[in-house]
């Protein structure tokens, strides 16, 4: 198992180098001179320009610059934001928990509803319930989530007044960040009101972000359930006289879950892409909104650093999914 892990990890190295090259090239391909952009509309003197150029290393060869970039990366140094002048790494890390919390709640929502829906559809195959569930999940799969978010805000926030429109927690609470997870931090502080408020703020964004993963999970669960239901060992289980419930839950679902878990893991890239839109709609202070702001403000070091870190996270999660697949599927244990 450990060897399998090492091989998988080694395979990631070229991809990761590719990612760093893309991110490095990104800042050089952008239209305009980064130093002039930094100087803004005031302009800049020739001496100051030369000074900044050598300070930022733009006067050296691209290869040297790239190696410097890599060296900084390995030390966790991604340069400073052009807007706030704070290290990009700190900016990213202070916002990442917000996105992670939202993504985990969205994923939980997707799994809690999508999995039973998929099982139900498979068991009732060809019946009205199956058609309904599959119709709804195809609709969810086709959903422009930025519109879906606006619709839910119009209904639940503006018209009914049930849920807040934006942010992570009511302004009445101030919670000292420990983990960066609003729900956990409020529990650490022992403040139930704040905890409930944080949950309240999470509901709509989680539903919006979880919609497409929910549809994917429901579809995948149904199709792998149907596949497993045709297997010999399921027929054997039925022939043994086991109850229908036991056959479905133990013999079928457990085996069908193998491919479902993989699909759930692969939703992470989708979640991060969806987070960009969801966070923009709900003004959620996470990395999605931060990246959009960085792109529109032309804060190139932030964009570059954000690209590398996000790609890195996606790759690591995909690796973990690969490993989990090896662990839970006895047929391909290495």
């Amino acid at each position: 198992m450990f060897k399998f892990f090492l091989i998988k990890l080694a395979q990631l190295v070229p991809t990761f180098i590719g990612v760093t090259i893309v991110a490095f090239a990104f800042i050089r391909l952008l239209p305009g001179d980064p130093i002039l952009l930094m100087a803004g509309e005031r302009g800049i003197s020739a001496e100051r320009y030369a000074q900044l150029e050598s300070q930022m290393g733009f006067d050296r060869s691209l290869v040297v610059q790239y190696l410097d970039f890599l060296k900084g990366l390995l030390h966790g140094d991604l340069g400073n934001s052009l807007v706030t002048h704070a290290p990009v790494m700190d900016e990213f890390m202070s916002r990442f928990p917000a996105t992670l919390e939202l993504s985990l709640f969205a994923l939980a929502f997707a799994v809690i509803i999508g999995l039973p829906a998929g099982v139900l559809a498979a068991v009732k195959r060809g019946k009205t319930l199956d058609h309904t569930i599959m119709g709804v999940s195809l609709t969810g799969y086709s959903m422009p989530i930025f519109w879906w978010g606006l619709l839910l805000i119009m209904l639940f926030s503006s018209t009914l007044g049930w849920t807040p429109v934006s942010g992570r927690i009511s302004y009445m609470y101030f919670i000292e960040p420990v983990t960066g997870f609003m729900t956990i931090d409020s529990l650490i502080a022992g403040d139930w009101g704040a905890f409930l408020s944080a949950l309240h703020y999470l509901i709509l964004p989680s539903i919006v972000l979880g919609t497409i993963p929910l549809a994917v999970i429901a579809r995948q669960t149904r199709s792998s359930m149907l596949e497993v239901l045709g297997e010999d060992y399921v027929r054997t289980a039925r022939a043994k006289g086991l109850s229908n419930f036991r056959v479905i839950m133990v013999h079928t679902l457990r085996n069908a879950l193998i491919s479902v878990v993989t699909v759930i893991g692969l939703q992470v890239g989708l979640l991060l892409a969806g987070a960009i839109l969801t966070e923009t709609i709900f003004s959620w202070p996470g990395i999605g909104k931060w990246m959009i702001d960085a792109i529109s403000r032309r804060d190139y070091p932030s964009v570059q650093g954000g690209l590398v870190l996000i790609a890195f996270i996606v790759m690591i999660v995909n690796l973990l999914v690969d490993l989990a697949y090896g662990v839970i599927n006895p047929r391909i244990r290495h």
Binding site: P14, T15, F16, G18, V19, V22, F26, L29, L30, P31, G269, L270, L272, A273, G274, I276, L277, M291, I292, I295, R298, V303, L307, I310, A311, V314, M315
Partner: peptide
């Protein structure tokens, strides 16, 4: 693989910015 390592919308946004 490198292209797939980025969330699609984010990469598209970055490219559009370029």
């Amino acid at each position: 693989d490198v292209v797939l390592a980025f969330p699609s919308l984010l990469l598209a946004l970055g490219l559009v910015a370029i």
